[in-house]
């Protein structure tokens, strides 16, 4: 959960995971998004997924994704997530909408222990689409790449305040559309928040 500020805009954002079930398969819920200047950000989504372990470090995902904001729709989600060698957390999910458009979201993250309590977390994300969605201002192809850095301090494991920096760069057709709309190619935000879990 965090407060963000940049390019004259401010708001709140979240990245939430929840799961329920035994070791081999679980109901997985993940949601990311934000409310910026009083409106729901168009990157906001929530997913309900059937998580099933298929190797010691990897699991398959199957379920539904619901987007929020203008031009939003419901999509079928199919993906994998797991821990790669060298401790990279990876998630790759493909989406199929009712109108046949296909998209994908790729996410990778890595943690660096500055000390055992002061931890630098880096995350990269990219979104790809088969077709443009003008109402959401995105084009076909690789739409963006987003880098996030967070430094958190684990006072206790479950309560860790953080500061960080987000940088999001539009690419390809999406970048062209944004330029045409007079929007910036890239956005940078400072964030203050906390990682909480239980």
């Amino acid at each position: 959960m965090e407060y963000l500020n940049g390019d004259g805009r401010s708001g709140a954002a979240w990245d939430v995971y929840a799961w329920y079930g035994p070791d081999e398969q679980k109901l997985w819920v993940r949601s990311e998004g934000g409310v910026v200047d009083g409106t729901v950000d168009d990157t906001t989504s929530a997913e309900a997924l059937w998580w099933r372990a298929f190797t010691p470090f990897w699991a398959t995902l199957l379920g539904l994704r619901q987007d929020f904001g203008p031009g939003s729709h419901t999509q079928l989600a199919v993906g994998v997530e797991g821990l790669a060698p060298y401790w990279f957390d990876l998630q790759a999910t493909g989406y199929l909408a009712a109108d046949g458009r296909v998209s994908a979201r790729l996410k990778g993250s890595y943690e660096v222990l500055l000390t055992n309590r002061l931890i630098l977390a880096a995350e990269a994300e990219s979104n790809l689409r088969s077709k443009a969605n003008p109402r959401r201002g995105v084009g076909a192809g690789v739409g963006n790449v987003e880098l996030a850095l967070r430094v958190r301090y684990e006072f206790v494991r479950k309560v860790a305040p953080h500061v960080g920096f987000d940088w999001d760069r539009a690419l390809g057709e999406t970048a062209i559309r944004r330029r045409a709309d007079g929007k910036p190619m890239s956005e940078a935000k400072l964030v203050v928040g906390a990682r909480l879990w239980w």
């Binding site: 222990l113 500055l114 000390t115 055992n116 494991r157």
Partner: peptide
């Protein structure tokens, strides 16, 4: 169950 290293505060660091 949620974090195998929950009680391990001696993990290798950058330093």
């Amino acid at each position: 169950k949620k974090m195998g290293g929950y009680y391990n505060f001696g993990q290798p660091t950058v330093g």
